[in-house]
Design a protein around this nucleic acid. Structure first.
Lengths: 343, 343
DNA sequence: ATTAGCACTCGAAAATGTTGAGTGCTAATC
DNA sequence: GATTAGCACTCAACATTTTCGAGTGCTAAT
């Protein structure tokens, strides 16, 4: 792929990208020869740069400025040129220290993970909580709150909890609730949440269940509990974005922040990452979200066993330190996987 | 109070404040006489303005600009001049429509409330989840996750749920867990969480309990569950702040966003509001938080019965539309109170 | 194929000019 | 004595011009 680029062009392109990542300023032919030990004259470099621009790897803000890499260049860089460093020992320590929290519920751990990702990368951290459907059912409990309000609590194997307040048509007494949950726990034990949904449907269709009022109630209640459980998302360190010179312009910044608040769109993007396991990188326009122009996303999936649970990653400018951030995201995903594993 | 201000000065001060709230531009003597039907000449107004500046109600950015109100002026305005409008019918409808969500847990409702506050006020909405300590204990449940990990679930009367993963020294079987929670539920029924903590302490000290291993375990476990439950906070619509001209400057904005991320400091401030019931207003420097310069906070408490549960409100520039926002916050707090009331 | 040399481009920053809203003061007016 | 017209003065904001230099593309020499 891209065999049409000579070794020299690649080296120069790489130098330009790395320089731009470091400085956020358009890179000129002079700078390249000076800062990177290329034994070429600026003039030669200029010729190569002109070719690279022709091919769509570089663009110039105006005639007499240097060049900046395009999304295509970053993609080429990430796919080929970049050699991913191993994670630094101290980074690894930091990650471990901040993720391993005992005595906190899953949500707190993931939130802290997101915060950690942001502070260690200096960009914005993002963690999508486990998709409930992939989890394994563990326990269902109904607590009577008062009157006709019941709190349904659904617990999955790895400790994720989902609550819902359900209003019933008439009062149920506590004993009934216990019987109902006992029955359901028995029936649903060991299934994934997705299978649970399935099973409930089947049971409700089953003729014989329609005659047991309590049972029918129980089924209805648990189905209500499972209805539209939207996944949670933790975005932390948004203000780190403000440090990036490319967002000094207020209008650009507004866009980004709006994008962060529009969590649904982001979720859509992250869902795409769910499908492919492991590291995933979206560069600028590749996300096909207009607000994400100039922004890159590095994600990885975390999982228990062979079950993909969720996604986590880092959002930063396209001009981000890929070689540093990729191993961080990678290591974090693996660590979180391990934490959620049932010991 | 402030009897030293003549009626006329008050009218002029009011006009300046309202003009500044509307335009965000320093107000000149000319403008005042034109826009507000004062039958005075600019020159007279200038004299009054000079007096007001002397007294600390106004300041001028530079010699040849108009005046802008100081925090002291806003305080005077809020305390005396401002007559709070009743909430508009359509606003009331909007609030109701967006807060009354069935089939969602409390957290979701409060988050949506925060979002609603931001979108209806055009500033930033903030909701602090009920302090757990003030809630009434309803139910405690232990779910075995696998190995030595137990998920403790604590439910309060109004449907707030708190989970915690607890690691035990050795395995407990499911039946034991049920017995433990039955016992505890019996013992703690009807107490407030604060009382529950108290009671657990007493029981643990009690000699006779030390000989029942299981019981001792149960007590320890529930105490772990209750340890350091930090209150959750929902801040929504942060990007609305970006619309405010006074934060067009990137440095100012960074400060604000950092402040939002430093939730602890904010929580401290909001805790102060918890103590005083009803509407509470912090204007700029009054909060004694440097990052909050130029920012005002309007809050109100929500409660069930005579129990103060939490705080909600709006954060905006000091130059915010107090007369519009105050009734919104007030009404929302009352509505949320009603929603959390056990029906 | 590479590179030195050179005219040219164009944004950024500094220097300069212009404008107008606003002020404070004084003296005339009600 | 309070109010106001009048006027000189101030100063940020905006527009215009100038300067500067990093960077380019092209050509001709190496």
């Amino acid at each position: 792929m891209h065999d049409n680029l000579t070794e020299r062009s690649k080296r120069i392109l790489e130098a330009i990208i790395e320089d731009y990542i470091a400085t956020a300023e358009p890179v000129g032919s002079r700078t390249i020869t000076r800062r990177h030990g290329l034994s070429l004259s600026p003039a030669t470099v200029r010729n190569v740069m002109a070719d690279l621009e022709e091919m769509g790897f570089l663009s110039s803000p105006h005639t007499s400025a240097g060049r900046i890499p395009t999304d295509k260049a970053y993609r080429f860089y990430v796919d080929g040129l970049l050699e991913v460093r191993k994670i630094a020992r101290d980074e690894r320590e930091e990650i471990r220290k901040r993720c391993i929290l005992t005595g906190k519920d899953i949500g707190d751990v993931l939130k802290e993970t997101s915060r950690m990702l942001s502070s260690i990368s200096h960009y914005t951290g993002i963690v999508v909580a486990p998709r409930f459907a992939a989890n394994i059912f563990r326990h269902l409990e109904f607590v009577k709150l008062g009157g006709k309000r019941i709190l349904a609590i659904l617990v999955s194997q790895n400790g994720t909890v989902q609550n819902k307040i359900i209003k019933t048509d008439d009062e149920l007494d506590a004993a009934d609730l216990v019987r109902m949950s006992n029955y359901l726990n028995e029936m649903l034990n060991g299934l994934t949440i997705a299978q649970v949904k399935q099973r409930l449907m089947e049971e409700m269709r089953d003729e014989k269940n329609k005659y047991d009022a309590l049972l029918a109630r129980a089924l209805k209640l648990s189905q209500d509990t499972l209805a539209d459980t939207d996944s949670e998302m933790f975005i932390e360190g948004q203000s780190n974005i403000l440090e990036q010179p490319e967002f000094a312009d207020v209008t650009r910044m507004k866009e980004i922040f709006r994008a962060f608040e529009e969590k649904n769109q982001l979720l859509g993007l992250l869902d795409r990452c769910l499908e492919a396991r492991g590291i995933n990188i979206f560069i600028g326009s590749e996300s096909h979200l207009s607000q994400m122009a100039g922004v890159s996303l590095i994600t990885s999936t975390y999982m228990t066993g062979k079950n993909t649970l969720g996604v986590l990653g880092v959002i930063g400018p396209t001009r981000m330190g890929y070689s540093k951030v990729i191993p961080i995201v990678d290591y974090t995903a693996k660590l979180v996987s391990r934490l959620l594993e049932v010991e």
